[in-house]
Design a protein around this nucleic acid. Structure first.
Lengths: 147, 147
DNA sequence: TCTACATAGATGCAACTGCATCAATTTGTC
DNA sequence: GACAAATTGATGCAGTTGCATCTATGTAGA
């Protein structure tokens, strides 16, 4: 039902993304660093700054499942990488803020993760080709984006 | 350390592939069908024909971890979708062959999975663009391939 | 205000994954 | 042939994920 072209593109997408992700994950593990999911959260929180983020905002940004974020934050808090603050105008919620220790961990993770990205993607394609990949994949998003 | 272009392409690759995979997985679940991993194995076994495949060959083809394949095959066997045969010239090993029931399940999965691929990828990009995606992603593989 | 409903986040339980290791067999070397 | 090393596949255990559900708080309508 899908064209052979579509099947091939799909297969490549699934295989290559899994392979690259596992490779990056492995590099982090070799250096005794936490998994990629932790980086995603620390990254979002670092960008958010002192104001922090509500868990549901993290869910929107990372696309992780709600229960996953809930437990991931519990682990990050247990490791002292983030702190949870009650939020004034909503008794249900909380604000999550990255700690100094969290920023330090993120920095050390980026040293390894960034190198993986550079090696696995940056070194394999030209700037033009990288732009083309971004643009094409952007059109597969939901909702699609062309930038 | 990686260029902004590389970071963006990486981020798109990770997000889009996860999003599409989850979408396809969800469609299967909605129809009461097994997860994608089952399809991958049934697909390889169907292509292999009557001769079947050794588990380690499945590992090479699917890139799943050894323990994962071992347990996945146990579940497939429990469901009667594959059968395990002792192999004559290697007392350690076994040959795994797809059953008629397995072929039927694969067929029903493809009806849903194929539609996902057509909708999520085939309908979003032209044939040329699909070819470009395949070619670019192929260069990210290890080892790289240009086809 | 009282009630129904929506939203934020946590959690018990079952299934699955990753890791390390195991047993069984084969292969290579002397 | 005997023994070390490699290969094939399975499995115990701990950690994680997915699902469903729960509690607590907020919002809207009569």
């Amino acid at each position: 039902m899908p064209s052979p072209d579509a099947i091939k593109a799909w297969a490549r997408l699934m295989r290559v993304s899994r392979q690259l992700m596992e490779s990056a994950e492995e590099s982090l593990k070799e250096d005794g660093l936490p998994p990629l999911a932790w980086y995603d959260v620390l990254h979002e929180l670092a960008e958010a700054g002192e104001g922090g983020l509500r868990p549901f905002q993290l869910i929107e940004r990372t696309l992780f499942a709600q229960y996953n974020v809930s437990r991931l934050l519990a682990r990050l808090e247990a490791d002292g990488l983030v702190e949870k603050l009650a939020v004034a105008d909503d008794g249900r919620g909380q604000t999550v803020r990255i700690t100094a220790r969290g920023r330090e961990t993120r920095r050390r993770m980026w040293a390894v993760y960034g190198r993986s990205i550079a090696d696995l993607v940056g070194a394999k394609l030209s700037a033009d080709e990288l732009g083309m990949v971004s643009a094409l994949l952007g059109r597969l998003r939901h909702p699609p984006a062309a930038d």
